[in-house]
């Protein structure tokens, strides 16, 4: 039984079909990435799974059909999206942002200890607990977004372009953090422009082309595939 299983997913913006008949699976504890060119439908796929876009096809999470459930109900099942551009609350403090991540949880003691853990994982946030999130650099905001997502105790974390707009050093840091999150047993569905990094981090990968899966292979095979290397890894 796969943790997430998507079959024949279709999403359209008006008359434009952004995703057509897409199948993908993420197993328990597995890290999977979606790579592909701009407009291939990567972000659209994540948004549709999170319930932020109307779609057709079937999406099952942990054996349950997500059907047309609203996004907030899906978030409660442990399927957490960190949207492109991070979507932090800019005028709330770091602490308030993290607490919003645990909004749906009622186990106060566990939330408290999770908060400690997030601060241990992201010490930079601990130093700046009371600062407003909107004043952070892009990398720090991405860390906060990751921390906030962790506060919801996700079973599957969906990250949309975590490296976007970050300085190269910061990209390394953020990916280091994501690696640690995977090691904790959180499953990952990653959308990433930087195919090189994504394939190094994940076990499997899907290459999206025009709203459908072009290739689906273990990450090392994709990284060795000459066509992939030419198209997405910047090698002639």
């Amino acid at each position: 039984m796969k943790l997430l299983s998507v079959e024949r997913l279709q999403v359209a913006y008006g008359r434009i079909q952004a995703v057509r008949a897409l199948d993908l699976q993420v197993g328990e504890g597995e890290a999977v990435c979606l790579i592909g060119a701009n407009g291939a439908g990567k972000t659209t796929t994540l948004k549709a799974i999170a319930g932020l876009l109307p779609c057709r096809g079937s999406i099952h999470f942990d054996g349950r059909s997500l059907g047309q459930q609203p996004a907030h109900a899906i978030a409660r099942l442990g399927l957490t999206l960190v949207p492109e551009g991070r979507g932090i609350f800019p005028r709330m403090s770091v602490l308030e942002n993290l607490q919003m991540g645990a909004y749906v949880r009622r186990d106060r003691q566990a939330v408290k200890s999770d908060l400690e853990e997030v601060f241990a994982l992201l010490p930079r946030l601990a130093e700046r607990k009371t600062q407003k999130a909107g004043l952070f650099s892009g990398g720090e905001q991405q860390m906060l977004a990751l921390g906030r997502a962790l506060m919801s105790r996700p079973r599957l974390l969906m990250l949309d372009e975590p490296s976007m707009g970050l300085a190269p050093v910061m990209v390394q840091t953020v990916f280091g953090i994501i690696r640690q999150i995977i090691q904790r047993g959180v499953s990952l569905l990653l959308v990433e422009q930087n195919a090189h990094l994504a394939l190094k981090l994940c076990q499997r990968g899907y290459v999206l082309e025009n709203g459908a899966v072009g290739l689906a292979d273990p990450a090392d095979e994709l990284a060795a595939n000459p066509a992939v290397r030419a198209a997405y890894l910047g090698e002639a």
């Binding site: 907030h72 109900a73 949207p83 932090i88 709330m92 919801s152």
Partner: peptide, 20 residues
Amino acid sequence: RAWVAIREDEVAAEAMGIPT
């Protein structure tokens, strides 16, 4: 707190599990 979150960013609030 949910109202404040919606005031800040409605999509993010929804993604946090708030029935906006």
